[in-house]
Write a protein that binds this DNA or RNA. Sequence first.
RNA 1: GGGCGCGUAGCUCAAUGGCAGAGCAGUGGCCUUUUAAGCCAUUGGUUGAGAGUUCGAAUCUCUCCGCGCUCACCA
Length: 507
Amino acid sequence: MPEYSSLEKIRLQKLDELRAEGLEPYPTRAARTHTSAQAIAEFESAEVDGREVRVTLAGRMRSSRPKGKLTFAHIEDGDGKIQLFLRVNEIGEARLEFFNKMFDLGDFIEATGVMMRTKAGEVSLQVLDFKLLAKSVTPLPADKDVTQADGSVIRYASLDDPELRARQRYADLAVNPEVRETFYKRAAIIKALRAFLDDKGFLEVETPILQPLYGGAAARPFVTHHNELEQDMYLRISFELYLKRLLVGNLEKVYEIGRDFRNEGVSFKHNPEFTQLEFYWAYADYLQVMELTEQMVSFTAQHVLGTMKIKYKENEIDLTPPWKRLEMREGIKQTSGIDIAEHKSAEELFQAIKARHPNKTPDPKATRGKLIDFLLSEFLEPTLIQPTFLYNYPRDISPLAKSIPGDALTVERFEGYVAGFELCNAFTELNDPLDQEQRFVEMGRDYAEGDDEKHPLDEDYLRAMRYGMPPNGGFGMGVDRLAMLLLDKHTIREVLLFPALRKEEFE
RNA sequence: GGGCGCGUAGCUCAAUGGCAGAGCAGUGGCCUUUUAAGCCAUUGGUUGAGAGUUCGAAUCUCUCCGCGCUCACCA
């Protein structure tokens, strides 16, 4: 049993009083005839010839201004707010007093009446009858904006503790309309991505989330257990290996939008479960994927925001294709002064970095791939504000990508960067089963050396590939990151309804 | 996991070793066209939890819990 606050006790008392009068505080059905926007639109067209517009509205009470024998109140529904106008003339003193006494901010109520316009000009509902639809026992965090004489707005008591907002997203949504807006737009983004890919002939598929082996990315997995099969299962860390099996099965263009799980740290851009988009496209290469990517992202921006020019933090960003293309080696050379091609071993590269940037030294035990990654994130990444495709990556950090013909050390891979962070990752997919097996073995060795985890070898994936996999381009993008970018949100929490938080203890 | 910071009324915040406060909301009252209105009165606290130092702790110390920032991890 919860410990009720004094405010809650008052509301519980009202619940008892309502029931004592034979009124049901949680009736089963509502009888709404119009939304607030519909009622206002209908009134505005009827107003011209003085027709009466009679409606029943339903919504949550957000404000109440009793003024003697009158009460003004606003209710909010899915379309917005609308004012209720209650007067003793229509409903009598007893009913008005009942309304003022028994109804609280946050209650869901229903009101029937005739649309009218107040002296101040606001289209309102002149209430003839009303009833409670659902009593709110816990007061919503009061959210009150007062506009000062100088035009500045003081916001009293809004809900803005980030923990409370995330933990009690229901209250956050109820009180902060801009949060609702964020999630409407997030849904629109995902819809636009689907529409784009469907239109290009991609087939949406669903592959296992519970997997006997995990793969397709380097991340620690969540482990669970299937009782009846008596085996451990993993929550997927990527879709890649399953989607590429489908290419073996002659499906030429497939995509999946779904949840990935990575048992890693949490940060402003990492949540343990996140939404991923991956597609695989037979007979295409990474250059074609690049073009499709810039089309898809700009299409989504245009669709959701009505423009390809967006703002992120202090930057104006133009997503209009074509995006800048920059060879990774060249970009690192320009920003760090180090040409990775001149330092072919980890040792040499480490010395070069140490010589050139003595106060920014990476881990001396890092592999060459990790050192390149260090240079990339330390020097190059922060400069990539306008959309940029970085392309041609070292083979040793890309075990699933295909080498450039004639250059065994470099693979056909690109990452899309916008606003200084990585948005997507794509490559011409490795489809040579023997080469793939070799890479898996190398990868297993890398992990065995230092890290607390080893990557399992996916024999079934290799078997699939041995049947023959068409050459293809593959793509992966964090949808939450895209949402952050398009909606100018600076933490992943702001675009997730229920971000991961530590378990809450209830008394 | 490491470092730094935060946790006070329903919400947002004051009080830095000396009587725990304000605004909003709540409660009671007045008000027939308000714009989350105004006026009068008023309730509300185990200061995240526990221990310690002190004549005295929201304040200083320690442990724990939760969150934030940051680093590490995350091809």
